[in-house]
Design a protein around this nucleic acid. Sequence first.
DNA 1: ACTTACAGTAAGTCATGGCTTACGCAGAAG
DNA 2: CTTCTGCGTAAGCCATGACTTACTGTAAGT
Lengths: 103, 103
Amino acid sequence: MAYAEALTALADPTRRHIFEALRAQPKTVGQLAAGQPVSRPAVSQHLKVLESASLVSVEPQGNRRFYAIKREGLDELRHYLESFWTDVLSAYGAEIALRAKKN
Amino acid sequence: MAYAEALTALADPTRRHIFEALRAQPKTVGQLAAGQPVSRPAVSQHLKVLESASLVSVEPQGNRRFYAIKREGLDELRHYLESFWTDVLSAYGAEIALRAKKN
DNA sequence: ACTTACAGTAAGTCATGGCTTACGCAGAAG
DNA sequence: CTTCTGCGTAAGCCATGACTTACTGTAAGT
């Protein structure tokens, strides 16, 4: 059920931008906010959501807090999609068989 | 950019339930609505969103319309996550190297 | 033809959530 | 010990979107 949180977290465009900004390397809130068209508190709130979805992790370092992408939430999403994948394939096969019968 | 539509589509719980109800085999709107706590028009609206995200396909059959899971939208999502995956791994490797230097 | 079943569309309501400003708090710096 | 910097939290505003009922349209059944 945890994939749900990851899905809703990544559904928001701003949140995706923040998340994608972390692709290369960990960044502080200020650095992330500088690259976004929204205020710094907004970024903080988004990071909170991403963190609770296990999509990012924090590491306080003195005054600042470095956020980084976390594999966990990403993994759950992958597995969720993967499970569909197999189902769809089998259903697809059944459909083919069905049509073959008809013809 | 198409993965965005798929993400927002699957972010809604009701829409996910509908989508998951199609795992096994294609169904009509009525059948889908029977399994949901919402009205039939609501289901219709959700299906519209899912369809525009390339997550489901329709096949009219007489009076009814059979909806089925479509691989396309699912694929785009997978690729999106996959691209992150590799980035995260390389960043992870860099981090390891960095820490190794410190110690 | 008339009615019944199935489904999409329209219009309007209401809650969720994304944003802002203002504030509070901890660590660094002077 | 004051000041400044970096962030999180609180409160409130407003738009988006998920839902409802009512209506329209088309195919099937009598």
